[in-house]
């Protein structure tokens, strides 16, 4: 039996295996789509809760990743819709490290990339995350998002332009933080 069919049969071990295999990915998606670490953690649980309820709508093990991503983007969108009130009340504009400790050498890069992604239009940022970070192909992204491959390509092109613009602004304003493109 495949993992998916075992999950559909209500096998708790299979569900745990699925959660363990996908927890990092779902959490990372939630963070890269704009949530802070605490919300991303809650959202990941919510994604899995939805997955449990909707498992019958997933048709193959190969589609599990894209199916989970589709749930994630809806859950994250809900969090973002309600997040404005929280941000207004708590005034939490500063991004918190989501993947490592504050003093981890990669943390400034992580924060910088996330802050630039947040400035991009949502649809563009999403394509950029899927292709440039997650490594999906244009056709796979088109399938996940339900848009034509040509639209994926144009969104990616616009995303790159916007990313470059915001990154250069960030470099100008935060040059003293030693952010750099490495080989540049």
């Amino acid at each position: 039996m495949t993992l998916l069919s075992r999950c559909k049969a209500g096998d708790a071990d299979a569900w745990e295996q699925l959660f363990r295999e996908r927890a990092d990915q779902v959490y990372r998606w939630a963070v890269l789509l704009g949530l802070g670490p605490a919300d991303a953690e809650d959202a990941a649980q919510e994604v899995f809760a939805v997955a449990v309820r909707r498992i019958e709508s997933c048709h193959s093990d190969a589609a599990l990743g894209s199916w989970l991503y589709q749930i994630t983007r809806r859950v994250v969108a809900n969090y973002r819709r309600t997040g404005w009130l929280k941000r207004a009340l708590l005034g939490k504009d500063q991004l918190e490290p989501a993947f490592g400790k504050t003093d981890h050498p990669q943390t400034p890069r992580e924060i910088a990339v996330r802050s630039v992604l947040q400035k991009l239009p949502r649809a563009q940022a999403e394509v950029m995350v899927l292709m440039e970070i997650e490594g999906f192909t244009r056709e796979e992204v088109a399938d996940i998002l339900g848009i034509p491959p040509g639209t994926v390509a144009s969104r990616l092109r616009l995303a790159k332009q916007a990313f470059r613009k915001h990154w250069e602004e960030l470099e100008r304003t935060a040059g003293e933080m030693s952010l750099s493109w490495g080989q540049r």
Binding site: A23, R109, E132, G182
Partner: peptide, 28 residues
């Protein structure tokens, strides 16, 4: 090249182990 390096560094980014465990346990 720089972009690939930086974005690539996030490709396997993961939550802290305790956060991952909370996610799994909460889902379970």
């Amino acid at each position: 090249p720089g972009l690939q390096e930086i974005l690539g560094s996030l490709r396997n980014a993961a939550p802290p182990p305790d956060a991952r465990e909370r996610i799994v346990q909460g889902a379970m």
